[in-house]
Structures are given as C-alpha cells and as structure tokens.
C-alpha cells in the first residue's frame, strides 16, 4: 500500500494529478485506489491538496495517515505536509517553487523544474503532468503504461498531444535522476 499526497496551489491541477494517478492505478494497473481532495477553508486561499491511497486490496482507510510520497508544487504545500511524510518517504518538489529543509530520516528528495519545462513545451498549465511523469519514473507506484492510458479522457482532447509530451518530459527526467542516485 502507498499513501501519496499532492500539494500545491489552486490552478496547478493538483486534484487532477490525484485523479489521473488514481485512475491509472485502479483502472489500468488493476490495483485499488482511493482519491480524496481537500474541501472547505483549507481548499481556499490558494492552498490545495489531494490524497491518494493505492493498494493491492480494497482501500479500507481512505485518507493519508503517513504519506509515502509527498509531491509538493508550492512552498505552502511543502510546509504544511512535510511533517506528514514518512521517514522512509519520497519527496518530489518543483525546484523553482519549493525550498526544502535538510531531509529527516531516510527521506529521499527528487527535484524537477516542472514549471520551466512546461513553459518550454508551450504551456505552463501542463506542469502538473510533467510532475506526474516524474512521479511515475521515480516512485514506480503506478506503471508508465497505465499513466499513458489514463491521460486521454482526463485532459482536454485538443491538448492531449501536449500533455503526452509533458508526461514524457517529466518521465525521462525522472529516469535520469533515478540513475544518478
């Protein structure tokens, strides 16, 4: 079982990231996954998060208790959820947006300039998909094939090509990072 937290600010596609990864895991990897998003005061004021639990059997407890992966796309998101990350967890950050403290325990940190990559590809809005590619390569929780299948239908059809490129970009970058480590 893996507990994943996506955190960022509104408009970055944080909820969408949870949905795409969850959909890939449960529909195309034949695992079980439960995604919950934050509602209410904590969902306003810019901060935004979604939580995803992926499991080999039915997900019983739907929320993240100790996250295995924290994907932080904003400083606020990092500050708020860093303490929730397990000591053996993986931290993924957008290196231009998040400054991190020295890692606790055995936490592994992987950073990527998602927003910059997305801008190079043409549209800043796909930065979350760059991050999803990166997430796929680094964590291996959801398979590459499943993620590729989950993208059509989850993103606007006319932007599918761009999203696929964004995903590949993040994935490739992630593969290299993993090799180096």
């Amino acid at each position: 079982m893996a507990e994943i937290r996506f955190a960022g600010y509104g408009g970055q596609g944080i909820i969408k990231s949870g949905i795409i990864a969850g959909k890939a895991a449960s529909i195309y990897d034949n695992k079980f996954s439960t995604m919950s998003q934050s509602f209410g005061p904590e969902a306003r004021g810019g901060a935004c998060s979604s939580q995803l639990v992926v499991s080999e059997s039915k997900v019983l407890y739907p929320y993240v208790t100790k996250s295995d992966v924290l994907v932080a796309m904003s400083q606020e998101g990092y500050n708020k959820f860093e303490s929730e990350l397990s000591e053996e967890g993986i931290l993924l950050i957008d290196e231009d947006l998040v400054k991190h403290k020295p890692p606790r325990g055995k936490i592994k940190i992987y950073s990527i300039p998602t927003t910059r990559f997305a801008e190079q590809l043409g549209r800043k809005i796909v930065s979350n998909v760059v991050m999803l590619g990166f997430f796929t390569a680094v964590t291996n929780i959801v398979s590459y094939e499943a993620m590729k299948k989950a993208l059509p239908g989850s993103v606007p059809e006319k932007a599918l090509d761009l999203n696929m490129k964004a995903f590949e970009k993040g994935y490739e970058y992630g593969k290299q990072k993993v090799k180096i480590k």
């Binding site: 949870g18 949905i19 439960t34 998003q37 739907p62």
Partner: peptide, 9 residues
C-alpha cells in the same frame, strides 16, 4: 461526505 467525495473505480 467521506464516501460522497471519495474518488474510486
């Protein structure tokens, strides 16, 4: 609310 706002297959 938990079930209503929980996304699953």
């Amino acid at each position: 609310e938990c079930v209503g706002h929980m996304t699953e297959k």
